[in-house]
Design a protein around this nucleic acid. Sequence first.
DNA 1: TTTCAATACGTCAATATGACACAATGATTT
DNA 2: AAATCATTGTGTCATATTGACGTATTGAAA
Lengths: 257, 257
Amino acid sequence: MERKVDLRQWLSGADNEFLPHISLDCVVFGFHDGALKILLLKMQNLDQLALPGGFMMREETLEEAAIRTLEERTGLENIFLQQFHVFSDPARNDSATRLEDLKKLGMHPAKLEWFAQRFISVGFYALVEFSRVRPKPDVLSESCDWYSLEERGKLVLDHDQILDTALATLRMQLNHQPVGYNLLPRKFTMPELQKLYETILDKKLDRRNFQRKMLSYGILNVLDEKRTGGAYKAPYLYSFHLRNYQKALRQGLEAGA
Amino acid sequence: MERKVDLRQWLSGADNEFLPHISLDCVVFGFHDGALKILLLKMQNLDQLALPGGFMMREETLEEAAIRTLEERTGLENIFLQQFHVFSDPARNDSATRLEDLKKLGMHPAKLEWFAQRFISVGFYALVEFSRVRPKPDVLSESCDWYSLEERGKLVLDHDQILDTALATLRMQLNHQPVGYNLLPRKFTMPELQKLYETILDKKLDRRNFQRKMLSYGILNVLDEKRTGGAYKAPYLYSFHLRNYQKALRQGLEAGA
DNA sequence: TTTCAATACGTCAATATGACACAATGATTT
DNA sequence: AAATCATTGTGTCATATTGACGTATTGAAA
């Protein structure tokens, strides 16, 4: 029988089911209104934002811990995620004010000890379909919401660095991971796909050349539908040809070069 | 004052200066005789080979721990290394025979406990210049030597998987990391560079097109020397134009496509 | 001196790329 | 109902890049 212990239970006094010194932080990417968004938590009574994170139970893998964490935070199952870096600076979480903040939240001193220890944090990035996410704060936070990359302020601890590394990784793996498939809804238009590439690569691409190259890979199905409702000419809808897509990713695309 | 505690000291009874549950394993790549080699340890009294690994001291980063480990194993300083994956399967190091083996080595029961715990291991790959390495076994092993990828047998625990992942990572990052610079001696010939690419990518490349592409990047200095001594026509020697090389890597080469 | 096999340099057709033109569309405005 | 509009779909063309291959050169070995 599986024993599920979440942070709320644990904070309320259950025995410690987590491995010490190891944590994980997730950069959850979504794509909405032509921009990359990330999921951030606002700590209770504080003006600081933080990446959703968690700890590892004694009998699960890092990936299982990340999935557990993200299912709680997003309401989604089968989340695509990749670990990308371990952050291990001894000073990364010994912020002077951090424990004070937690004490203010009324945390029991015995539990404060847990947060006082040194943590090595494994960074994951997750790709989710924006519209399907139902953000839910965790015990320590008062809100969980989408933020665009520009409007985020300074994040807690080294979370800015984690986010930057995630972005750089996403950029490097864009042609090797199913980024489009996981960030876009099942049906999407070519301009939407292009905008996604432009956002991640942070550069403009030629509309016509982009389309030519994308179609040449044979990873897209042109659907017999158009996206009506928008202004001006209605673009075709596409979906991914999953088998060809995965095959092409194994070789590595070269889109946006 | 820095306090250095190595595995030997620690095993001999010093206080535990290592973080629990966290280990690291290094895949050290060298290039010799036109083939990729990796550094492996042979455990005492056992026919098993293992990757060089170690633990993390309470006040160092993962990278510092890996460098410390590798300096001991290779005699080199300034080793190029990259973390590439964390291996966290709860069952990865609960081999039935493993503790028995360690007991046979005469390890103190108190120290055996250390090895009995669950470990999350961070995988690093390192690129070194083969000829400069002076392999040195650690306390638990009787030898430390180069092996070609083919002649290695089954490795301990999940080290086969770690090695395979390192290779796949190396292949993917070949055009983004200074692989040639770190694996080859300062002066090298074009055929040597090509063979390196062919080995890592595991495919033949056209000699003339490879040279054309490499030279087109402007990352190589043609030296006024040739490699004499070999049979037949003496090839030119090259060295990397470090500034251009690093600039080109940031964009990502496309060699061997 | 000849032979040899590998290196250096070059050619060329096929393909891919980057930059741009123009017609078609469907909602909005007149 | 017609004109307008910004965007989308398709196509062109000069240039650059690629892949495949040919030939001359070199330095050691025969």
